[in-house]
Simulated assay, not measured.
Amino acid sequence: MTACLADNAADISTFEEHISMVRNTSVPIYWINLRCDGSVLEKRVTSKERREGNKSKLTDASILRQMIGEHGLLSPRQHDNTVRLIADTIDVSRTLEESVHQLLHILHRQY
């Protein structure tokens, strides 16, 4: 599953629902939050390619700043031994290749 869950009651409930599906199993949950430098994120959101793309995406930097100011990502922590939760953060401010390298490092660290 790919989702953007915020630190609020509804999204915490969604997270707990997914955790309950793997509780007492050997199935791991990989929780990886993506972080991006604000200036880089604004540049990406307002890029010409994004504005001219054929998908409906956010292109207004002021709305982006408002969303970031009003919401924070859910950062779950291991509660007990009944769930194998692997939580980490990737900085996606740089190149795609660097982000992939960070992801692979997280995955390989677990095995």
Rank of each mutant, 00 (worst) to 15 (best):
N33C: 08
M1V: 12
C4Q: 15
R50A: 06
E97N: 14
A10L: 07
T2G: 08
G38Q: 13
H105S: 15
L64N: 04
H105E: 15
F15W: 08
V27E: 10
S99G: 13
V45S: 03
G53Y: 09
R51C: 02
L107G: 08
V92K: 00
H18C: 14
A6M: 13
N81C: 07
M1P: 00
S93N: 03
L41V: 06
D37A: 09
V40T: 11
V83C: 12
S13L: 12
T82W: 02
I63V: 14
E17S: 12
P76M: 14
E49I: 07
F15N: 11
R65G: 06
L85Q: 10
G38V: 07
K57L: 15
L34Q: 07
G72C: 12
V83D: 11
S62N: 15
I86H: 07
K57V: 02
L104T: 05
R35L: 05
V22S: 07
Y111T: 13
P76F: 14
N33A: 07
T59L: 01
H105M: 09
L104R: 14
H79F: 01
N81M: 03
R35T: 06
D37I: 08
A9E: 13
R23M: 00
Q102C: 06
I86E: 05
N54V: 02
G69K: 04
S75T: 15
D11A: 01
P76N: 09
T82C: 13
R109Y: 00
Q66N: 13
S13E: 14
S75N: 15
R65N: 08
D37M: 02
D88T: 04
V40R: 04
Q102E: 15
M21W: 12
N54F: 01
S47W: 03
T82K: 14
I32T: 12
A10G: 06
T14D: 04
A6L: 13
S56F: 14
H71P: 06
E52V: 09
E17V: 11
L58W: 05
Q102Y: 13
S47E: 10
W31P: 01
N33I: 03
D7R: 01
E49C: 02
A87N: 11
G72H: 15
L103N: 10
A3T: 04
C36E: 05
R77K: 13
Y30S: 02
L41I: 03
D7S: 12
G72W: 03
S99E: 06
I90N: 03
V100C: 12
I19W: 10
S47K: 06
L34F: 15
L5T: 03
T89I: 12
K55P: 01
R50C: 01
Y30I: 08
V27I: 15
A10Y: 01
Y30P: 04
K48R: 10
T82P: 00
L85T: 05
E70Y: 00
N54K: 11
I12T: 09
V27D: 05
R23Q: 02
G72Q: 13
A10E: 09
I106L: 00
T46A: 00
Y30W: 04
Y111R: 14
A3E: 13
H108P: 00
D37H: 08
N8G: 07
L58H: 05
K43H: 09
S75Y: 02
E49A: 14
L34V: 07
H105F: 11
S99M: 00
A10D: 05
R44K: 11
I106D: 04
A3R: 15
K57S: 03
